[in-house]
Structures are given as structure tokens and as C-alpha cells.
Amino acid sequence: MAKLSLSEVSKKFHMDRSTIYRAVRNGRLSRSSDGQFDLAEVIRCFGEPEKMPQKIESSKQEGNESTKKLIAHLENEVKKYQEREERLMHQIDRMQALIELKSVAPTTAVPQQDATACDIHMPQYDKTQQNNDNKKNNELNIAENVAVLQQETAAYHTQMLQHATLQNVVIPKHKKRSLFGRVLNAVFDNN
């Protein structure tokens, strides 16, 4: 006769240990002196053990493999998006450096005194007007670059959401932040 331990009975018959102890205490199941259970006695008490169909086990393995593939694919996508975000942050840093240089350059420039007596009759172009025009042009260029960056960021988020929708994955939406807010967030998150 086959003998089973308590843990083997619990696993094979999918019973909780407390249920087995209760059956022994009530006299429905007997235990030998060595603490083992007779297989025929356990079958008489609990019935035939439930067998897990092979289909369920194979589907679990297939599910695990597909899940692993999906996880690897999503990890690659996240890595690509992180690289793209890093490139965009470098562009933002570059633009801010340009803004700082443009704002510092006119104040440190030394005005030149080229006017000679012969230049009196020629109309002089107002240098402050020229500086203001340069500042406006620089500000327009910077504003255009920021707008392009914002469009690229919006396209990036749209692409990420479309990809996540295709994969049936929910990605939380982040609230819109200004350029300064994104830069501060990037600085403090990188530390």
C-alpha cells in the first residue's frame, strides 16, 4: 500500500492541512503510527485526487512566454522613449544656454565710437534700435524653436499613447507643464 505524508496529501488532493487534521480528529481518516496516511484511506475520505489538465499547464507556459516577450518589447520601447526624452532635454538645455548668451551678450558688448567728421551728413542708425531688433529676432527664433520642441514632445506623447493602446497598456497622463517646469523636473529627477 502506498503511504503519503501530510504535505503530499495536501498537495495531491488540493486540501488544506486544517481540513486533513479535522478529518483525523473526527475519525473519518486514520493515520499510521509513523504519521503517514494510507492512499486508499485518503481516497475513501476525500475521493479521487483532482488532476490538473495538461491544457491548463501548457497554456500557463505559453502565457508566461508571451508575457515575457511582451515585457521585453515594452522594455525596449521604454528605453527608446527615454533616449528620445534625453535628446529633447539636451535640446532644451542648449536653447536655454543660447537664451542666456543672447541676454548677456548685448550688455557686455562695448559700443564703438566710429563716427568721424565726414559721417555727420550720413544718417546714423540708432544702435539701441538695432539691439532691440536683434533681441526681437532672437526671441522669435527661440520662440519658434520652443514651439517645435513642444510639437515634437506632443507627437512623442501621442505616439507613446497610440503604441500603448495597441498593446492594451494604460499609461497615466501627465499634466502639462511649462518649459521651465519641465526643466526643473528634469534637473531634480536626474539627481
Rank of each mutant, 00 (worst) to 15 (best):
L29N: 03
Q61Y: 08
N141Q: 05
E144S: 08
N137V: 12
Q162G: 01
G181P: 03
T108M: 07
D126Q: 08
N132K: 14
E62R: 15
Q113E: 03
K60Q: 02
H90Y: 14
Q151A: 10
K176V: 11
E86P: 01
M122R: 11
F37G: 01
S58G: 01
V170F: 07
A147L: 09
H73I: 06
Q130I: 07
Q54S: 12
K80A: 05
M160Q: 05
C118I: 14
P123L: 14
P172K: 09
A109Q: 09
D126A: 11
E57K: 15
D34R: 07
H163I: 00
I171E: 00
S103H: 13
Q151P: 00
N168E: 09
F13R: 12
K55S: 11
N134T: 03
R31A: 02
V78Q: 04
R87K: 15
K136V: 14
N132D: 06
L6C: 07
M52W: 06
E75M: 14
A2K: 13
K51N: 02
E50L: 13
K3M: 15
I43N: 10
N191E: 01
K102Y: 02
K55R: 13
F180D: 09
P53W: 07
P172V: 08
A147E: 05
I142E: 05
T19L: 11
N145V: 06
E152H: 08
L74N: 09
A109S: 04
K135D: 00
T108E: 04
N137F: 08
A154L: 01
A164P: 12
E100L: 13
A97E: 04
L179Q: 04
D119N: 04
D16W: 08
I20A: 05
S178D: 04
E152I: 13
Y21H: 13
K173Q: 09
